[in-house]
């Protein structure tokens, strides 16, 4: 699982930090490094850009995995530089931003937009694989998720916009139901495409979603 991000336009970041002159910068060594949006190089570039606009960078760090609980410790270890800053810019996905936000009382500013939870198909190519709907139907759809692979998230087959195996929204995109159809055909399981799927329960777990893991098995 990877959190896929893109950098916000610099103007937007500048607008968000308009009132702050002393800034601490945090990058992430995992997903944002892989997507080249918040790794060492990108943190360095943003630092330079901000300095050229007269901002003082009190310090910067690339946390191995910004979303995990170690982030609070890392922030503490750099307490002086963080304390010195008026705000923290986080070059990580929204999980990293929220982790920092919960471990430090100062304003936290995201420098990235989080696009989706995705997988890498080939180097640098990512696709959205799961909508985390709480009701997995991959067992009936040849392992291809129509909620994410179909623009409309349809369950009962292709819409009229399907076009030679492509999607009406973007001719570069595959029609999910053509993929599902071809795969099921290969598997000799086309009967699955004839099955009626009733409307989804969009509140398998109502928002805000939370869960408590059972860490110990009962006897």
């Amino acid at each position: 699982m990877k959190s896929i991000t893109k950098q916000k336009p610099f103007d937007e970041v500048e607008m968000l930090i308009e009132k702050f002159n002393r800034i601490y910068l945090i990058g992430c060594g995992t997903c944002a490094t892989m997507t080249k949006t918040g790794g060492i190089n990108e943190v360095r570039d943003l630092k330079k850009a901000l300095q050229s606009r007269g901002k003082l960078i009190t310090g910067c760090i690339v946390i191995p995995t910004a979303c995990d609980e170690m982030t609070a410790e890392m922030v503490k270890e750099n307490e002086k530089a963080v304390q010195d800053a008026q705000c923290i810019i986080v070059m990580a996905c929204a999980l990293g931003v929220q982790r920092v936000n919960s471990s430090w009382p100062k304003p936290v500013i995201p420098a990235l937009d989080t696009l989706f939870i995705g997988m890498e198909e080939s180097p640098g190519q990512f696709f959205e694989a799961c909508d985390q709907c709480g009701q997995c139907i991959l067992g009936e759809t040849a392992g291809i998720c129509p909620l994410t692979a179909c623009h409309k998230g349809l369950l009962n087959g292709p819409c009229g916009g399907t076009n030679n195996g492509k999607c009406e929204v973007d001719p570069e995109k595959d029609c999910a139901f053509t993929l599902i159809y071809e795969r099921l055909k290969e598997q000799d399981r086309l009967d699955l495409l004839r099955k009626y799927h009733p409307p989804k329960n969009y509140h398998v777990m109502p928002r805000p979603k939370r869960t408590v893991l059972l860490l110990e098995r009962g006897s």
């Binding site: 623009h151 409309k152 998230g153 349809l154 369950l155 009962n156 087959g157 819409c159 009229g160 916009g161 999607c167 009406e168 929204v169 009626y196 799927h197 009733p198 409307p199 969009y202």
Partner: peptide, 27 residues
């Protein structure tokens, strides 16, 4: 009808609902 995709129209940033599809609407 299921309906056309939102981005083909003139309010491209709107949220497409598609809570149901055409088959489910018939049901």
């Amino acid at each position: 009808l299921t309906g056309d995709a939102v981005p083909v129209g003139d309010h491209r940033a709107a949220k497409g609902i598609f809570d149901l599809d055409s088959v489910q609407l018939l049901h």
